[in-house]
Write a protein that binds this DNA or RNA. Structure first.
Lengths: 336, 336
DNA sequence: GTGAAAGCGCTAACAC
DNA sequence: GTGTTAGCGCTTTCAC
């Protein structure tokens, strides 16, 4: 429909010429509409639409120092935790008229530092979901860039974390009701905020309830790592398992199945995060739901504050219990 | 380590000053190294590193018309098909020193058109994985933008598709060997390239082998849609199921389980794409593996050609059979 | 081989 | 309210 009269891309200059005003008036009509007379603004907007104009953000960015682009650094898009987070951030960013530049560090901490500095000039700020980068290097990489950290906290930037403590403990209590007295804890990646906090939650619950805990790991947050330790779970005679995350939980279930055991008939398994595969496996996984929507919205909000120079703050959102099909009554076992 | 002497962001000017050459020499040393004397180039590079310089792509883009950014449009990051694709594209883009601007259309075809035009000025080209946008509007949205389509073809742009025909038929043959004679075909989203082609593959196989096909759908490519039609599969007395994709396959399995049936003991289920959840469910899903790495690499390569104005081409890559745990011998059933 | 200068498209003082 | 001007950081003729 709207066809440009010329082949060249429309700019504020072509619009200015078409309407018969100066380029700055066009610029104002477009970005600070309240500053121009109604009639002029309408004419400009009409012409802009007519010519199929859309602003060159690079140029705008050059002039203003704001690019309208948010960078997002994830260690691995393929880890099912990230897609919902990306989606939520994307939606929140869109609401603020910002674009999303995605960087996947491919699990390489060393790459992360370089990556951040690489995109720094082209983004207004960065949302970093990078559990591995050591604190010192993180701080170095983020120096001078408005940033917000996801599931990790530091004094150097704003952060948003999900606190699964209460939910994990509540599930633990349910396990006790089901008769479990010996539970395996599959720890997540060493020295990460999430792994530390989740382990702490389980340990303090065990202490309170007198349940015996068998710790396994630290392990990578991968399916195969979970699968590989199923044997240890069986050897330890743990009737239930707290896996670091859903992926690892799916792995244990597969590993148990490799050894002829079924979940929840033979053992109970609990995950964490409630990613897609937790919902699509049969039976569905008992886990803790991460509030992805809120995570994303808040992350973008915090980033906005950081960009505006309003200083940093740390927010924590609780995860919610999702009781599903992978926990059941403690089975009578031979070993016991 | 590398600390800037000043607080201002390093530019080619600060480097020029530090080295004692002109900005244009710095620019050349950085982007056309062969044009400057070795000694100068080395000095410039050293200073750049020293100051922690990284080029402002927006400025470069303004000057050259190339932004170094690739746009990628997906209908839903949360659909497990996309993360591996994104990863592959990201890796290939990185190899070409390009960044990735990700757009999630949230399954809204109407948004897609606007979204593309919105990012157009800030990207060199777009990789579009948008099955739904009608052809005419797709063409309109993509007019003038170098683009490559994923799993969809059109004469308007380059395209890369994965052809699952042979693999699906091979799995079908296996099903016949296992004694299946009546198979359900859960069709995917209406009027999409993938759904059409997959259905066609199954139908022609059925015709050749004399297997009876019960078609269900079209359906959305969602877990719940698969779950909802499990009853129809049972009613139709189909011993095996070809689901449009893995997500739908997981859905049927859940739906069958809701009705007390187990896979593969009671019925066989076949998915397509081999996304993460196909590998992590227990038992693992028999499906067709999409060659994500190749998809991504080729998409970026084709986009490079399109950007260079080399015209478009269409490439097709075959999917590979992944025989796993969800198919088994046809069960003797009451109805039969 | 290197420097000077213009310009990419836009915004932001500063005049009028 | 609107136009003029300068400049964001970079590349790229065009001279030298």
């Amino acid at each position: 429909m709207a066809r440009a009269s010329t082949t060249t891309k429309p700019t504020i200059y072509s619009i200015a010429q078409a309407v018969g005003v100066s380029p700055s008036t066009v610029s104002r009509a477009l970005s600070r509409p309240e500053l121009v007379k109604d009639s002029v603004r309408e004419a400009v907007l009409a012409a802009a639409h007519e010519l199929g104009y859309s602003p060159n953000r690079a140029a705008r960015g050059l002039a203003t120092g704001r690019t309208g682009v948010i960078g997002m650094l994830v260690p691995d898009v393929q880890n099912p935790f990230f897609p919902p987070l990306i989606r939520a951030v994307q939606v929140a960013a869109r609401a603020r008229d910002a674009e999303l530049l995605l960087i996947d560090s491919e699990l390489s901490a060393s790459a992360e530092q370089e990556l951040v500095s690489r995109i720094r000039p082209q983004v207004d700020g960065v949302i970093v979901a990078s559990p591995r980068l050591p604190a010192a290097r993180l701080r170095e990489a983020l120096a001078g860039v408005p940033a917000v950290l996801v599931n990790r906290s530091t004094r150097a930037a704003s952060s948003i974390v999900v606190d699964n403590t209460a939910a994990l403990q509540e599930i633990g209590d349910r396990l006790v009701e089901l008769g479990h007295q010996r539970v395996a804890l599959l720890r997540g990646p060493q020295a990460t905020w999430a792994a530390t906090h989740r382990a702490r939650a389980v340990r303090s619950w065990a202490e309170r309830t007198g349940v015996e805990i068998v710790e396994v790991g630290p392990l990578e947050a991968q399916f195969e790592d979970g699968r590989a330790v199923a044997a240890q779970v069986i050897d330890a005679d743990a009737g239930a398992v707290f896996a670091f995350d859903d992926l690892m939980a799916a792995g244990v279930i597969a590993g148990l199945s490799d050894r002829g055991e079924r979940v929840p008939q033979d053992r109970s398994v609990v995950g964490c995060d409630d990613v897609l595969l937790a919902q699509t496996m049969t039976p569905a996984l008992t886990t803790v739901s991460a509030p992805f929507g809120e995570l994303g919205t808040t992350a973008v909000e915090l980033l906005g504050e950081a960009i505006a120079g309003q200083g940093s703050r740390a927010v924590s959102i609780p995860g919610r219990v999702a009781l599903r099909g992978t926990i059941g009554p403690a089975a009578r076992r031979t070993k016991q």
